[in-house]
């Protein structure tokens, strides 16, 4: 069965590593749904969190192929039940009148967003959370007219002390 899987990859923080990792997905015929990259708790190592749409066999193959890359130190799949997944999203939404503005600001509270910019006819929100929560907010705001969306894609870590 095909579904989204979240893989966390610890890699050497060197030029070309991102290309190697993403190139591997392309070459083996897997589609990256999202990817986030940043430094990790270890100096000179970076962590990539990649969401890939695959079946179990494909996922296994992706993990093994990633492990073969000399610059890849560790590959783990994050179980959605025992990991925390968060994404940041900036949304610029139209607020043509006072009513719209009030309503959008109410949603902001419900969804625990931050207002990061306001101008005459638009508000820019920053929302952090599970991708599902962000999707829900976007759906609501569509009624007002969304000017721009910028999403980081989810990053994730496992819960508790497990790796």
């Amino acid at each position: 069965m095909f579904k989204n899987h979240t893989i966390s990859i610890l890699v050497e923080n060197k030029p070309g590593v991102l290309q190697k990792v993403t190139g591997l997905f392309t070459r083996r015929g897997f589609n990256i749904e999202s990817i986030t990259v940043g430094s990790s708790e270890v100096e000179n190592l970076a962590r990539m969190v990649i969401v890939v749409y695959a079946d179990l066999k494909g996922l296994e193959q992706v993990k093994k192929q990633l492990n073969k890359l000399v610059d890849v130190i560790k590959v783990i799949e994050l179980d959605p039940n025992s990991s925390v997944k968060r994404e940041l999203c900036l949304i610029k939404v139209k607020t043509n009148d006072a009513k719209a503005r009030t309503e959008v600001m109410q949603y902001t509270e419900v969804f625990r967003c931050n207002i990061v910019d306001v101008c005459d006819h638009a508000i820019t929100l920053e929302v952090i959370g599970h991708p599902n929560k962000i999707n829900a907010l976007i759906k609501l705001l569509k009624n007002y007219g969304i000017k721009k969306i910028a999403r980081t894609g989810p990053t994730a870590v496992s819960r508790g002390l497990v790796l």
């Binding site: 066999k57 296994e60 193959q61 093994k64 192929q65 492990n67 073969k68």
Partner: peptide, 8 residues
């Protein structure tokens, strides 16, 4: 010797 070959 290559784990990726197993089950591929």
């Amino acid at each position: 010797v290559d784990p990726a070959e197993i089950g591929k």
